[in-house]
Amino acid sequence: MNRIGFIATSLLILLALLSSTMFVVDQRQFGVVYALGQIKKVITEPGLNFKLPPPFQNVSYIDKRLLTLDSQDTEPMLTAEKQRVVIDWYVRWRITDPGEYIRNVGLDENAGALQLNRVVRNAFQEEINRRTVRELISTRRETLMADVKREVADAVKSGKPWGIEIVDVRITRADYVESITESVYRRMQAERQRVANELRSTGAAEAERIRAEADREREVTVANAYRDAQKVKGQGDGEAARVYADAFGKDPQFAEFYRSLDAYKASMGKKGDVMVLDPSSSEFFRAMQSAGARAATPAR
Rank of each mutant, 00 (worst) to 15 (best):
V119E: 12
A204S: 09
G269A: 13
E45M: 12
K265N: 07
D73H: 08
V105S: 09
R121N: 07
Q235G: 05
S183K: 05
Y226N: 10
Y34I: 05
L107G: 08
W89F: 12
V243G: 06
V184L: 14
R103A: 10
W93Q: 12
I102C: 09
N117H: 10
F257V: 09
E213M: 06
G203P: 01
L69W: 03
D278C: 06
E219W: 04
I43R: 11
L107E: 09
I137E: 02
I43P: 08
D278M: 07
A146N: 14
M188G: 01
G236C: 03
G37R: 04
G31D: 00
L48A: 02
E239G: 03
Y258G: 01
Y244S: 06
S20D: 15
R227E: 05
V24C: 14
V274T: 14
D88E: 14
N122C: 03
Y264P: 01
A207Q: 03
G292S: 08
K160N: 13
E219G: 00
A229G: 08
P55A: 02
D251S: 05
E45G: 06
S158H: 01
P252S: 01
G106R: 13
G272L: 06
S280I: 06
K41N: 11
N122S: 13
R118E: 13
R118I: 15
I137G: 01
Q189K: 10
F23V: 11
T9M: 13
I39M: 08
L199N: 12
M288L: 14
T68F: 15
P98R: 03
N110H: 11
E127I: 07
K82S: 00
L11M: 13
I180K: 15
A245T: 08
D251E: 08
Y34S: 03
D251Y: 00
E178C: 02
A204Y: 11
A196I: 10
T181V: 07
N129P: 09
V184F: 12
K64R: 13
I95K: 13
S281E: 15
I128K: 00
V24L: 15
T172G: 09
M275L: 04
M275C: 03
F6C: 14
E256N: 04
I39E: 05
S60R: 10
Q253H: 13
Y34N: 05
M22G: 13
E182V: 09
A207G: 02
L114Q: 07
M268E: 05
V184N: 07
F254R: 13
V42P: 13
